[in-house]
Design a protein around this nucleic acid. Structure first.
Lengths: 153, 153
DNA sequence: AAATCATGTAACATATGAAGTTACATGAAA
DNA sequence: TTTCATGTAACTTCATATGTTACATGATTT
């Protein structure tokens, strides 16, 4: 299965946008994601519909964050990218007549439903602000380790 | 993404096998699954390696269950089909240099790891025997509802 | 008002991987 | 020795996420 990386990719560029105070073009975001500007616009369109980001045409145009980073979560972004299928495992037939297959599907579906609920609650528990904070922490840690290296010399 | 249905499909046919006391050919299992015998052999090969099933060549040959249904779980079958990727969501780059992307990936990975652990524990909690029992329950319920329909006439 | 820059989006192309298929080898039973 | 069944490599098909091209729309600059 080819894995859907829209969520991962767009979270990445949205956080970059958040740290800039001027609109960012699809072209620049695409460069950050290592992809094509049209792909960026396609995905960002979903976030715009949800009111998470704003777009402006023409000179000086581009994308901006439309909401406080504390006020939306990974779950919102997941929904905004179209709530893609979470699991790479599926059923052979969705509504089987065979009772054996029904029993199997029911057992699998129960397990998947629980796992999905947990995943979603975790997504809902992480604000973009928290991700940004984690990034700043990593930045700090890296600087410290660089300083430590200098000390060692 | 095309979803991997090996687990669902093979659980289905294994339960059918379990209710028969003679070896079942790949061709018959394939008919149950609505697929090709080679596909069945390919998947069953993994179960055989794990000692879950046994195969016999030649006349009267075919596949048999090699272990008591109470003694293996959906988790064993999942492992036997090669432990395919569970999630259809992934990262754009696995080991990004960008610290923002690292923060995003870490948050996603945490959530996925928890969901996967839950899924696996649920799989491990369902024996094939439990599935077979659920099937018998469904059979009973269906017969009852058929009788009820007759009553209604 | 004309040129430029940016998004909006449809249509098409590419790439990946699960599943399906063909072909033939191996081995067991009739 | 014929028949039946698995074992497996190689190839084809199909779905679909992603990438690309092309062109329309609208905003800003000159």
């Amino acid at each position: 299965m080819k894995r859907d990386s829209k969520l991962s990719g767009i979270l990445h560029v949205v956080l970059h946008m958040a740290s800039l105070d001027t609109p960012v073009t699809s072209e620049k975001l695409a460069a950050m994601m290592g992809t094509n500007p049209v792909v960026v616009r396609r995905i960002m369109a979903g976030l715009r519909e949800r009111g998470l980001v704003h777009s402006e045409k023409g000179h000086g145009g581009g994308w901006t964050i439309a909401r406080d980073l504390e006020d939306f979560t990974m779950a919102d972004v997941y929904a905004a990218v179209g709530a893609p299928e979470i699991f790479a495992l599926g059923h052979r037939s969705e509504q089987p007549l065979c009772l054996v297959e029904q029993a199997v599907n029911a057992a699998l579906d129960d397990a998947f439903a629980e796992a999905e609920a947990l995943l979603m609650s975790r997504f809902a528990g992480v604000t973009l602000g928290a991700l940004a904070a984690d990034f700043r922490q990593r930045l700090k840690t890296r600087h410290q380790s660089v300083e430590e290296q200098h000390h060692d010399l």
